[in-house]
Design a protein around this nucleic acid. Structure first.
Lengths: 249, 249
DNA sequence: CATTGATTTTGACCTAAATCAACCTACCCT
DNA sequence: AGGGTAGGTTGATTTAGGTCAAAATCAATG
């Protein structure tokens, strides 16, 4: 799909993250920084890291070194039941900050894996703490991002604890829709990057149920489905179905 | 139950929080601080606040001013579905830090209410951010507490997403047990401070199911139940039932 | 382009938990 | 002290979603 320049020598300076020119910097960690602060931020965090589909960023039990901001791509994180049952804890896309779970004990508690070829900005956590002591607005924004994760999780708990299958799936599609929209993509047409099984795990349902409900939504003319391609046709009706829960992020 | 000195004039100096002498300071926000840092902390956060059963600390939509550290008592927080369905998001006890959800947008997203007469340490958030810029170990510990909340929430998501009723309740009882133990209370005998309905909401089950499963556990000799009083008899078997998920906190 | 393995759809059937309903119990409150 | 009310138990019945199974579709590979 993507053209890859073959044997061109790579200019290292281009590998720098350069938040100041990144289109995500309104969504991402350096949001709210002034130009001079941004420059400082750039100087400290210059590690960019490509990640291939299927690569793990970290696994449960591994030590926390860095947080990762997603520059591009799509990622899932999941917690494991020791009997092997997997619970998907979240899907993440450009601008999201990963690895927050590892701060608690300096060990990650979930696995995070790329669902498509992606690119991460690696942010050594020690450096982030140090820099955020020097830049109050960075500190505050970091706190807000952690808090947002907590709020998001509460949304998922509400969904898992008290919504029916249709409501869950409607809320899920709407949440994806909003998040794509916030990143400049179409809110009504997109490709699911995950399997039905992964959606099911996230929503506390079985893959067959996901499939059935998607089919039902299609029959009712709410959406169009073809494999992973989704087109939302009646956004309003979906919203009503999900009881219009703002569903976070 | 508790003797309350009647008309004794109250010495205001006793109302100070004085983390340095608080039995919780190993569990609570000032954990890991040196003596001199602790003194500084004491000087900044001297607001103690009693809360009566049924009082709200904050409600969804209200502005974030302070975080609250629980000094004594028991509290629940819950998110509301706009149709009125309540989802209990957590139960909290001494040493827990409340209000983190409000940092994201400077507005709280859940309601937090005391389930018994309690006492809070009020921690103005701005001051906390300021102080944590000056005391790295405070900063780090605060980050750990936020992260711990995220990890805890993942645990709940796992529970809600992939455990059966018995497993959920077993995990819940074990979690309470551990948390009481960490605070110096009996891990095997305690009073539930919440109703069956609230437990049910937290676990994504109906109150009748909670009641039935508790009865079944009792029949099987795993626990003894009398109203809100719980005695755990076969801790190991319970653990096995819950597939021994460390269930956080 | 044929083969293979993963993913998805659909149907038939089953079960865990919800719902509905009746009754019991404890603890407020005047 | 006793009547009211919130909370709890238990049983009968229903149902949403799970489980099992088979077939269809898709995507990767040599």
């Amino acid at each position: 799909m993507k053209l890859q320049p073959k044997s061109m020598p790579i200019d290292v300076s281009n590998l720098k993250t350069i938040c100041s020119t990144c289109s995500l910097h309104e969504l991402c960690l350096p949001a709210e920084l002034s130009q001079s602060e941004l420059d400082l931020f750039d100087r400290v965090f210059d590690r960019r890291r490509p990640v291939k589909r299927g690569d793990y960023l970290y696994r449960a039990g591994s030590a926390l070194h860095s947080l990762f901001a997603i520059r591009a791509g799509f990622v899932k994180s999941s917690v494991m039941h020791e009997d092997g049952r997997e619970q998907v804890a979240g899907f993440h896309m450009a601008g999201d900050l990963l690895g927050l779970d590892g701060i608690s004990t300096s060990q990650h508690t979930c696995d995070t894996v790329a669902l498509e070829d992606s690119e991460m900005c690696e942010i050594p956590f020690m450096s982030l703490e140090k820099l955020s002591r020097e830049i109050p607005s960075l500190q505050h924004h970091f706190h807000r991002m952690m808090s947002r994760e907590i709020v998001r999780d509460h949304g998922v708990m509400l969904l898992l604890g008290s919504m029916r299958a249709e409501e869950r799936l409607a809320a899920f599609l709407l949440s994806l829709s909003q998040r794509f929209a916030a990143r400049g993509y179409s809110p009504t047409e997109f490709h699911l990057r995950m399997t039905r099984e992964e959606v099911g795990s996230y929503l506390g349902l079985k893959l067959e149920t996901i499939s059935r409900v998607l089919s039902r939504f299609q029959e009712e003319g709410l959406i169009e489905v073809r494999n992973k391609y989704i087109k939302i046709i009646k956004l309003e009706d979906l919203r009503e179905l999900a009881s219009q829960r703002g569903c976070s992020t």
